[in-house]
């Protein structure tokens, strides 16, 4: 499982465990599964899906970054909105 937090300047929108994350990186979507290598990437504009096919939550994000360390995923974005 991945421990995920979705953070915007105003609040933490999501905090919990999911089995997969698909995020809109600056150059296209990036999928994260457990045991992913440490990664740091910039985000573009698009839809962030938590869980398989977005089962655990879907957010519209714009800019910011995504960081993966030891199954902890941090999505830090300037504008995030739950879908």
């Amino acid at each position: 499982m991945l421990k995920v937090s979705v953070i915007s300047p105003e609040k933490t929108l999501f905090e919990g465990e999911v089995d997969a994350v698909v995020a809109p990186a600056f150059d296209g979507e990036v999928g994260i599964l457990p045991q992913h290598a440490p990664l740091m990437t910039l985000l573009g504009y698009g839809e962030l899906r938590l869980g398989l096919a977005g089962a655990s939550g879907r957010f519209r994000v714009n800019g910011g970054f995504l960081q993966v360390i030891h199954d902890h995923v941090r999505v830090v974005t300037e504008a995030a909105e739950a879908l």
Binding site: A25, F26, D27, A37, P38, L39, M40, T41, L42, F65, I69, H70
Partner: peptide, 13 residues
């Protein structure tokens, strides 16, 4: 600092 895969480069980030 863990050995990140950085995309794009550190500078760009």
């Amino acid at each position: 600092v863990p050995d990140y895969i950085l995309a794009p480069s550190a500078d760009a980030i």
